[in-house]
Nucleic acid binder design. Structure first.
Length: 780
DNA sequence: CAGTGAGCGAGCTTCCGCTTGACTT
């Protein structure tokens, strides 16, 4: 029997530590927090000094009972949760819930999972830091107050089931404001002039760019014309060394960014794959904001670089976390064993591992040394100068293994000219212009956020934590505040003026401007909720709200302020504000826009957010006659829809005629336009418009839908028409009384009898709802 | 891409941060 019980947060960590400690120690995991405010109740007793009412969630009861049993048996309980605010609170909740004896309880922390670090921690135990616990309670209570007081205001004023919170609402604000910047953006034209030059007496070619850029077509034309009679000569030549440093090792946020850029992963995908790598023991913990590498890791990385890359490539570096609110309970994300260059596993796991491996190695490698040469080329009849830039790598350093990507792919393309070595040139040397090209360009609108660039921005603002970046991104999409959208670009033509030899030609090119795919775009609901919150709760929406409140929590952690005082200061201002806004009698519904009057009825036409999303309304609820409603179509927006477009939506449903004795109608539903025939529905494809579709086209759709349905049915039974074996997205399944059932693996679906099917249905119904996995299997 | 095709009502929704399952008919 173990004399000691060690409790850590994660089971994977528990497994590793158990190996170091031997039989006298039993190591268990708390799986994060074991206690929290009730999921659905407010659970804060405001009158009793904001006292939180905690409960152990049902799914943790069994776990807690197990911990309690083992704690009773142990001579000493070591609380080894992370050394940050949340970790301290976990230790305290364990202490309280397990009813631990102070004489037989120790709080320990270690910064890396090595035998010496853990033994050292055990040699140096301390008490639970109650100030740090209080700072966590303040954080928890504040977030609950903000979320649970603000959200109901939105239900009342805008639409049910919406949500607001300290983190998510600011994330939405960033996206909404970026979209407003884009809408207000006016692109300006300029002319970029590049030339291909040849130093006299050589056949070398040099690419050079004019600086500054030219403002308009007239200037560009004048410049190119001037070039026909100009003499070009080499002016100043400057050679300077340039160095580049490697990026620091990965944190959660930078891993999410690089995996998005280099591998095309979503942030949720990155975290899932990283979790697998962590559980398999390939990488260190993946939710971290620390840039630190353990001394042991640095040792093995050095060895790896010296042995396999070269001693001159080694440069040991210490990185310091600069992001606000970093708590550094873990290491940076790195391979647990750097000598392992490749791992066994799926394609995604291999790719992500390779990325982490390279980044980690590169972070301890030497700077890359470059030599950049700038050559000015003067023009006899103009004040501007061309510049040719050459860059040669003198020592590749970390670039040998890894190079960080940037979000801005345009700038990379524009500077491509400056790569490589320049031919030998000397000041005063004459040059010939082989070709001069002036191209009309346009300034770029601000970029929309991607999931990863939003995470980066949130981290910069100190909002959210490594464990919440991915869930926050999911939440704002699930609430339909933002969506990954596609923006079709606008075609745009641009002018190119070229001088070749002595001949000037002009032509027009075309490109697509402002196209975007997979970027985060606010929905109508997102914009309206954001504007509402900003108008009535500006302090919560302030980008610095979290930073300011964190400063106060720091004071609580240092024992300079009581946590309830800090909450009281906030609540006495916030709560009256909530009450006031909640009781506000608004003249219009929030976000409503009046489009005009319906020419047919003379009634008012308006758009707003309804119970089920954006809608158009003819008439008002005050009228004696009931108003008419219609949902907006995909791609339409409350902020931009016109009266004509709105009225078109009421041309549905349209009756086309009869087919096989049933009426055929067209309408627009939740999932877009559809044809209804009797009780059957068929979606109308994009090529056909519901306004113009004919009866024949509709019948064609109905027929092809029938064909598809026929393919879907694998088997039916004469004795029971309700029982069907169908072919769906995930394979063959059984449909019975509007419910679906999966078929056991390895069954031949064709051979199923009605009895077989009924048995599968019955088994499913009898099966316990939640399979509580037996401890026997868990132990193994 | 299998299925869904509303809109008074009654009762529900909601936060952020720790951590993994056991599910994805």
């Amino acid at each position: 029997m173990s004399k000691n019980l060690v409790i850590v947060e994660s089971p994977a960590k528990a497994k590793t530590i158990a190996k170091f400690l031997g039989d006298d120690y039993k190591v268990m995991s708390s799986y994060g927090h074991i206690r929290d405010l009730h999921k659905k109740d407010f659970s804060i007793d405001i009158a009793a000094g904001y006292s939180p009412i905690y409960e152990i969630p049902a799914e943790k009861k069994e776990l807690v009972a197990g911990l309690k049993r083992e704690a009773k048996k142990a001579d000493m309980v070591w609380l080894a949760s992370d050394e940050d605010r949340e970790g301290e609170a976990i230790a305290w909740h364990l202490y309280e819930v397990l009813g631990l004896d102070p004489a037989k309880t120790r709080r320990i922390v270690f910064h890396e999972i090595t035998k010496s670090a853990i033994l050292n921690a055990i040699e140096n135990p301390r008490d639970i830091d109650i100030n740090l616990v209080d700072a966590q309670q303040a954080r928890r209570v504040l977030d609950r107050i903000v979320g649970f007081e603000l959200s109901p205001v939105l239900w009342k004023k805008i639409k049910p089931a919406l949500s607001a919170g300290r983190v998510q609402s600011v994330a939405v604000r960033l996206i909404v404001e970026r979209e407003k910047e884009i809408a207000a953006f006016k692109s300006e034209q300029y002319y970029r002039v590049v030339a291909q030059m040849q130093p006299d007496g050589t056949d070398a070619k040099v690419n050079a760019e004019l600086s500054p850029r030219l403002p308009d077509e007239a200037a560009a034309r004048q410049f190119v014309t001037d070039c026909t009679s100009a003499r070009f000569s080499v002016g100043d030549i400057t050679v300077k060394p340039v160095k580049r440093c490697p990026a620091p090792p990965f944190t959660t946020s930078t891993l999410q960014q690089e995996a998005a850029r280099k591998l095309g992963f979503t942030v949720a995908q990155t975290m899932m794959v990283a979790q697998k790598l962590y559980e398999s023991g390939f990488i260190t913990y993946m939710r971290t904001d620390s840039l630190n590498l353990s001394s042991l890791a640095i040792g093995t990385i050095s060895k790896e670089i010296k042995e396999n890359i070269g001693e001159e490539y080694l440069k040991i570096r210490k990185y310091h976390t600069s992001s606000k609110g970093a708590q550094e309970a873990h290491e940076a994300i790195r391979p647990t064993n750097i000598a392992m260059h490749d791992i066994a596993g799926g394609v995604q796991e291999k790719k992500l591992y390779a990325l982490i491996w390279k980044r980690t190695i590169a972070s301890q490698m030497a700077d890359a040394l470059m030599e950049r040469t700038n050559v000015d080329i003067s023009i006899s009849n103009r004040a501007e100068k061309f510049t040719a830039t050459g860059e040669v790598v003198k020592f590749d350093g970390f670039l040998k293994v890894y190079m960080e990507s940037t979000d801005d792919d345009n700038s990379a393309a524009e500077t491509r000219q400056s790569e490589g070595l320049l031919p030998a040139m000397t000041t005063g040397m004459g040059m010939k212009a082989l070709e001069v090209t002036a191209t009309q360009r346009f300034t770029q609108q601000p970029p929309r956020y991607t999931e990863a660039s939003l995470v980066k921005k949130l981290e910069e603002l100190g909002i959210g934590r490594p464990s919440t970046y991915a869930p926050t991104i999911s939440t704002i999409q699930n609430r339909e505040y933002v969506a990954k959208g596609e923006k079709k670009g606008e075609p745009r033509s641009f002018k190119i003026i070229t001088l070749k030899g002595t001949k000037i030609t002009e032509k027009t090119g075309s490109e697509t401007a402002g196209m975007d795919k997979g970027k985060l775009i606010p929905t109508d609901t997102g914009v309206i909720v954001n504007d509402f919150l900003q108008q009535y709760f500006p302090s919560i929406m302030d980008y610095n709200f979290t930073a300011r409140i964190e400063e106060e929590f720091d004071e609580v952690a240092e024992g300079k302020m009581k946590w309830s005082e800090s909450i009281d200061k906030f609540y006495t201002r916030f709560h009256p504000n909530v009450t006031e806004v909640s009781n506000l009698r608004l003249e219009h519904k929030v976000g409503e826009r009046i489009l005009g009057t319906d020419p047919k009825t003379g009634r008012q036409v308006s758009v707003k957010i309804g119970r089920f999303g954006p809608l158009v309304q003819i008439g008002s609820t005050d009228d004696s006659e009931k108003p008419q409603f219609a949902s907006l179509l995909k791609g339409q927006s409350v902020s931009s829809i016109t009266l004509d477009e709105a009225l078109k939506l009421f041309e549905m449903p349209r009756t086309l005629g009869e087919f096989e004795g049933d009426t055929v109608t067209v309408a627009i539903g939740r999932f877009g336009p559809y044809v209804k025939h009797g009780s059957k529905f068929v979606s109308i494809p994009k090529e056909l418009a519901p306004q113009t579709i004919t009866l024949d086209e509709a019948i064609e759709l109905i027929r092809s839908k029938r064909e598809e349905d026929a393919k879907k049915v694998v088997k039916t039974f004469a004795d029971d028409p309700d029982m069907q074996v169908l072919n769906g997205k995930y394979g063959v399944y059984i449909a019975y009384h509007k419910k679906n059932f999966k078929i056991p693996k390895g069954t031949d679906a064709e051979a199923l009898t009605l009895e077989d099917c009924l048995k599968i249905v019955a088994d499913e119904a009898n099966a316990p709802k939640k399979t509580t996995r037996s401890r026997r299997t868990a132990k193994k």
